[in-house]
Write a protein that binds this DNA or RNA. Structure first.
Length: 588
RNA sequence: GCGCCUGUAGCUCAGCUGGAUAGAGCAACGGACUUCUAAUCCGUAGGCCGCAGGUUCGAAUCCUGCCAGGCGUACCA
């Protein structure tokens, strides 16, 4: 019997009891957990029945609890105020769930709710004039995690990266290299390509302060690029190539994957024809300045400062396009390229208004799927000194941060291995998994809408509510299972009725929650729910671990039962961490 | 001005589709390693859940108003 079936069985028994004692079946009751597992394994609040039977919830709970006699499933039913607390026979409670989790393995918790649905997760959207920073890491961690969660719920997921590879800012680093680069390359200087190019972007900003004339040169360069000037295009290709090499390294290291790349150099002219069609369909109009505009529906957007209807410009009078123009085109391109059911944009909260407008326009143009476009908005990452600004150098570089965290993890590993028994590459590998895991967990543990005040001291912690804490719980279990092997394989004859102490119950209850937690998390694109859940599960295991021996339990039957429990816990921890994009280690 | 987000322990945050005494981590203090990995565990201390009303048997949670902070507010991306 699965947990869901178990809950259903319990409700059926209660329904039957109510019908017998009170003369009619009850309205919909919900099953939950008592605050303390010692009180019972499940709880049912009787509030909805108060009106139906004109008795206080406590009275009703008492009547029902008296009627529920112990049987093969229910061990005990006790009324506690308005609640009925139920204890379940251990073999049923533990055995069924542990067997199921061990049997299903990584499939545990997954569902088919998205079967047949195709979802695109667009995330990261870097600029090719500078390296990635902490904000990109939050975006990347969110994007990967949401993609993982969608996959785990049966969706076919396409991960897309919309690369901002053109525009004045790109020309700035190009111009700087042209003037002061002396034909150097990332190879010749031994610098990662994106950093190499980023240095020229910074150089430009410095020089432009002294020499305003540079601004004109950049504009001129942009025009040459748009005109397809072979020399400029070649320079652009070469420098972007350097950047992509650099990005690829960071993607690999941080575990970011993409199925499709869209480049703005290829999409920036999209959307214009759609605007033309929209004009014919009278979706767009021309304003007093000659702009082609979309009038935003008052019901949703309200009115502007001077009490007029709000509008958004989609084409300038000279016919040139805007950010939103190409986004309209790209949105349509994505759908036609990949036959999508859902389109998810992982973009910072400062662009909420933009996406609200974009989706409204798409809907007005008659695209039904516009309702299945979601802006996964997330809060900013603030540094102790304030908002990150790359031009002022107030920034946390992604590569630097990763390297720093990995270094700290490495130091920690060496400290635990004073005799130097570990091989160098083993140390390096562990440090990488722990360091990267710590960053991802740190960025995902708060809900997306929350802005993050980046606290270096807190972010480098490996204790408490952190990735390494959860990884450590997994590694501990692996250690035990390793020692138990090969003598004991989980057998169908494991006697789970021996389990039932407070820590075992707490752990089991945690394990039962994964399917529900995943469903909740994916519904509002919120990986923090998984992070919190996995932390609580790791904690439940650690509490159990500290109080009860597994391999040295009183007798062989108990050893086997506890092995089954922690084997199931390992499955859940690994699954949950993987959903966050965090890897696990067998040893730490 | 308007829109969205945020306000919970010294700090960082869970909880927000209303239900049992408001939780966790960090920091502080005190304990537990001859026992399966102490990146762990246990304990102590710490709260007008921004303020004021309202709805309800019941409000951190829902509604209204106010206060404070962040982000945005077409013709940048």
């Amino acid at each position: 019997m699965s947990f869901e079936q178990l809950e259903k069985t319990i409700l059926e028994k209660i329904n039957a009891a109510v019908n017998e004692v009170l003369g009619q079946p009850p309205q919909q009751l919900e099953i939950g957990f008592p605050p303390d597992p010692q009180m019972g394994h499940f709880a049912v609040g009787c509030f909805p029945l108060a009106k139906q039977f004109r008795k206080s919830p406590a009275q009703i709970a008492g009547i029902i609890a008296d009627r529920l006699k112990p049987d093969a499933v229910i061990q005990e039913a006790v009324a506690a105020g308005p609640y009925i607390n139920l204890k379940i026979e251990s073999q049923v409670l533990f055995g069924d769930l542990c067997n199921r989790i061990i049997h299903e393995g990584t499939a545990y918790g997954t569902s088919a709710m998205g079967r047949g649905k195709r979802a695109m997760v667009e995330y990261l959207a870097p600029n090719t004039n500078k390296p990635l920073h902490l904000g990109h890491l939050r975006n990347g961690a969110l994007g990967m995690s949401v993609a993982n969660m969608l996959e785990a719920t049966g969706h076919r997921v396409i991960k897309a990266n919309l690369v901002n590879d053109r525009g004045v800012h790109i020309c700035k680093s190009m111009l700087a290299w042209q003037r002061w680069g002396n034909a150097t390359t990332p190879e010749s200087e031994g610098i990662k390509g994106d950093h190499f190019v980023g240095n020229f972007y910074v150089r430009y900003s410095r020089e432009a302060e002294k020499n305003p004339q540079l601004e004109n040169e950049v504009q001129q360069m942009l025009q040459q690029w748009e005109a397809g000037d072979p020399k400029i295009v070649e320079l652009w290709k070469m420098m972007n190539g350097w950047v992509y090499d650099g990005f690829a390294e960071t993607y690999r290291r941080f575990g970011l994957e993409f199925d499709v790349f869209y480049y703005e150099s290829e999409t920036y002219k999209l959307g214009k024809d759609i605007i033309q069609q929209g004009i014919e369909k009278k979706v767009f109009s021309t304003d007093a300045y000659g702009n082609t505009v979309f009038i935003l529906p008052e019901k949703v957007f309200g009115r502007d400062k001077s009490d007029g209807l709000k509008k958004v410009t989609v084409l300038r009078p000279d016919g040139t396009s805007l950010y939103i123009t190409q986004d309209i085109g790209t949105a349509i391109l994505k759908i036609t390229d990949h036959n999508l059911d859902y389109s998810i944009y992982v973009v910072g909260s400062e662009q909420e208004y933009h996406f609200k407008c974009l989706f409204a326009i798409l809907e007005a143009l008659g695209y039904e799927w516009a309702r299945n476009c979601y802006h996964l908005s997330y809060g900013m990452v603030y540094l102790p000194e304030g908002k990150m600004k790359s031009r002022e150098g107030k920034i946390v570089d992604a590569d630097d941060l990763i390297t720093e965290m990995v270094k700290l993890a490495e130091a920690e590993i060496r400290q635990r291995d004073p005799q130097g028994r570990l091989a160098e590459d083993e140390i390096k590998n562990r440090a990488e998994v722990i360091g990267v895991g710590a960053i991802k967990f740190y960025l995902l543990r708060v809900r997306p809408a929350q802005s993050i005040n980046f606290d270096p001291a807190e972010s480098i912690s490996f204790d408490g509510f952190t990735g390494p804490y959860c990884q450590y719980a997994y590694a501990r279990i692996s250690g035990i299972l390793e020692k138990a092997k090969p003598a004991r394989q989980q057998s169908a004859g494991t006697d789970y009725s021996l389990l039932g102490n407070a820590e075992e119950l707490q752990l089991l209850q945690q394990l039962s929650r994964l399917p529900g937690e995943l469903k909740n998390a994916v519904q509002d694109f919120n990986p923090s729910k998984i992070a919190v859940y996995i932390f609580n599960t790791a904690k439940a295991f650690n509490q159990f671990y500290n109080k009860h021996p597994v391999l040295k339990a009183e007798n062989e039957q108990l050893v086997n039962a506890r092995l089954g429990l922690i084997r199931a816990a390992a499955v859940v921890l690994k699954k949950g961490l993987n959903l966050l994009g965090v890897e696990v280690l067998e040893n730490m």
